[in-house]
């Protein structure tokens, strides 16, 4: 299935776009998505502890992704 990944900050600059389409297996976990993204964009491995959010919530590594989900890659946050 094809999913659209939202990205921000340093990761958005690495992806080159706020929205990135990527083909993933029908059953994909957050961890396997991260592995896929890291093979496509090796530079994100240098970003310590980035997270994935599904539908506005931080997701654990074993969470499964659905095509209808809003998926976002979250580099370390730094508001304030």
């Amino acid at each position: 299935m094809k999913v659209t990944i939202l990205s921000f900050g340093s990761i958005r600059e690495i992806f080159g776009n706020k929205f990135t389409e990527i083909e993933v297996p029908d059953t994909t976990t957050v961890d396997s998505l991260k592995a896929l993204l890291e093979s496509k964009y090796p530079r994100i491995k240098g970003i310590a502890s980035y997270m994935v959010a599904i539908n506005d919530e931080y997701a654990s590594g074993d969470s499964t992704i659905k095509q209808s989900d809003e998926i976002a890659v979250i580099p370390p946050v730094c508001g304030g």
Binding site: F8, G9, S10, A53, A72, I74, V77, C78, G79, G80
Partner: peptide, 8 residues
């Protein structure tokens, strides 16, 4: 906020 809110 500095730890959890997605702002960069």
């Amino acid at each position: 906020l500095k730890k959890t809110v997605p702002i960069w």
